[in-house]
Design a protein around this nucleic acid. Structure first.
Lengths: 160, 160
DNA sequence: ACTTTTTAATTGACGCGTCATCTATTGTCG
DNA sequence: CGACAATAGATGACGCGTCAATTAAAAAGT
């Protein structure tokens, strides 16, 4: 099953072919994600915000005035808590987020986006939307759809 | 092209699903990669090695007795150098890698995999290959192929 | 030949993910 | 009620990616 040299293989300057198309697929996914992350980082850089901070702000905007406890934010990012605490520290320091210990359950800390956070999102969102389009712009709508489907299938196996 | 997400739902929950299929595609890629990374980490954990360290070892094995200068390793991982130096520090400390300042060009540091590194790879590789297959196992070979093609297309745009 | 530029690598600093551990609160049950 | 488990977070430590700045050596320019 010697497969001809693929582009990814060339990019990685690998001397031997992939052992299987599955290995190539997983590497391909990771590599593409890496590229996307890098581009996203560069886009957000002028706004002094990282991709994860951006994600958290979006989640908090979605939560609205009700706010969201620390752990719940982490769940939506599939991130472990320890990271969330410190990420929120930085957002709070920048004045983009506000935290209040919950009176009903004093173990919880409710997090809210501030007006500053809202306006930062308002500034960044349109840029990012256009950008995303350009990133995936080499694909037709149908191709993007099928990409999504394939990736979903891959993730379903994820119970491993 | 507002996709069929009901406007009503969008208004109720400010958490709008996706503005476009392209945004969904990029998020999908990143999410899937995250899952893969997590699983890979777990598989390598018993061997006291991280995914990046594993990658570097594989690259050095590929380089063979000729070895490879630090920067060249970084290029193949698309990682900036600063990280490579320290990653190699850790690999060297564990005895999996050996570094020698190049005599022809004394700026360079040539890196080699050690016997210890080789045998670690020999132990890990088969496990990982089987694992990869399982990760992507929900896909048929043809689906995996088309996934690879779509992702390649996406990365080509990456000059952005 | 001597200065300037470029290249290879290192170091310091910071953000992030993750593990293990710790504290404070709440809940449960005898 | 009082001991004990469960839950929400926080903290310390480590690996990693990345930026900016630094050192050392080679290459280029004059």
């Amino acid at each position: 099953m010697a497969r001809q040299t693929s582009r990814l293989q060339t990019e990685l300057k690998q001397t031997r072919p992939f052992q299987s198309i599955y290995q190539e697929a997983t590497l391909s996914v990771m590599k593409t994600a890496d590229l996307l992350r890098r581009q996203l980082t560069r886009q957000l850089e002028p706004h002094e915000i990282t991709p994860q901070q951006y994600n958290v702000l979006r989640i908090l905007r979605g939560a609205g005035k009700a706010g969201l406890p620390t752990l719940s934010i982490g769940e939506r990012l599939i991130e472990e808590t320890p990271g969330m605490t410190r990420l929120l520290d930085r957002l709070e320091f920048k004045g983009l987020v506000r935290r209040v210990r919950c009176e009903q359950d004093r173990r919880q800390v409710l997090c809210y986006i501030t007006d500053g956070g809202e306006s930062l999102l308002a500034a960044v969102d349109p840029i990012l939307a256009a950008d995303t389009k350009e990133m995936a712009g080499a694909l037709t709508g149908a191709e993007a759809e099928s990409l999504v489907v394939l990736l979903e299938k891959m993730r379903e196996q994820g119970t491993l």
